[in-house]
């Protein structure tokens, strides 16, 4: 049976979709069967980041409403043959997701895939609660700033109360993925430090993704950053995070602690 992961945050724009795609591609490169599922009905983005926007014929709402079979709606990645996408509908809204329909889809996906990664929409409403409902494990994406941290805290509270696991009295495994981290700005006090965020949220750290232009570049060419440029700093951080998800012990490095000459110059310029 596959493992269901929800990538969630509460706040929008912190990097849920980027992280879903990057972690999905990183896990698929370990030859594990991965499907990334977009729950953001009405505002779908994952297809763009995966570079599959022109290949979406059927989406999740079609499957829920019985217009298509699940295998018809699964889009295989052109670069990695173990990576699949289940797109969200762009023309509907989140009310088209039914709890029964989502349960059926997740149950079916669990039979065929090792990892089911659900990209949650922002907010705490229906879309977000349905995305987390069947998860075995949660990746909470947070930026090092106060509003994102507070929203993540809210989401963690919901993960502990509104998910099936929580209702069955089990403990939901939660991991913090700190994205858009800039060590220089954290040092200057413009951003929260890693330890501050961990202190407030008190959940284990899955990884720290450095703020980088490579992420934007990758989205623009329609590739998860772990596929577009596997040697870039964010890609390496996502690879490490994926290894930790898979249960390996990988020491966590705070990005930007050791910087070369170029890094120093750019670091100053970015300020």
């Amino acid at each position: 049976m596959g493992k269901v992961i929800v990538v969630t945050s509460g706040k929008g724009g912190v990097g849920k979709t980027t992280s879903t795609a990057a972690l999905g591609a990183a896990l698929a490169q370990r030859n594990e069967k991965v499907v990334v599922v977009d729950f953001d009905v009405g505002l779908r983005n994952l297809d763009l980041v995966m570079g599959a926007e022109r290949r979406v014929v059927y989406d999740m709402v079609n499957v829920i409403q019985g217009d298509a079979k699940l295998p018809q709606a699964l889009i295989r990645d052109k670069r990695l043959e173990t990576l699949f996408l289940l797109a969200a509908s762009q023309t509907r809204d989140k009310d088209s997701l039914t709890p029964e329909g989502v349960e059926r889809i997740i149950g079916e996906l669990k039979k065929y895939f090792d990892w089911i990664i659900c990209d949650s929409p922002a907010g705490i409403e229906r879309g977000a609660t349905l995305a987390m409902r069947h998860a075995d494990m949660a990746v909470v994406v947070t930026n090092p700033e106060v509003s994102s941290v507070r929203d993540s805290d809210r989401i963690i509270g919901m993960l502990d109360s509104k998910t099936l696991k929580a209702e069955n009295g089990e403990r939901m495994e939660k991991h913090l993925l700190l994205t858009r981290y800039d060590a220089n700005r954290a040092e200057r006090g413009d951003m929260l430090k890693v330890e501050d965020v961990l202190d407030i949220l008190s959940i284990p750290l899955l990884g720290i993704i450095p703020e980088s232009m490579d992420v934007l570049k990758a989205s623009n060419v329609g590739a998860p950053v772990t596929l577009a440029d596997a040697r870039s700093a964010p890609a390496m951080a996502y690879f490490d995070a994926a290894r930790r998800l898979a249960g390996e012990t990988v020491p966590i490095v705070i990005p930007g602690e050791k910087r070369g000459l170029l890094g120093k110059i750019f670091g100053r310029k970015a300020a």
């Binding site: 929203d151 809210r154 963690i156 509270g157 502990d160 407030i200 008190s202």
Partner: peptide, 27 residues
């Protein structure tokens, strides 16, 4: 025994409340 997260409220008119953990902003 766990942190009280943002958006949660613990209401206990009957007596004392002890939290072994933090109480987040917005809780």
């Amino acid at each position: 025994h766990e942190p009280v997260r943002s958006g949660q409220s613990v209401i206990f008119p009957e007596g004392d409340v002890t939290v072994v953990g933090s109480v987040a902003s917005g809780a």
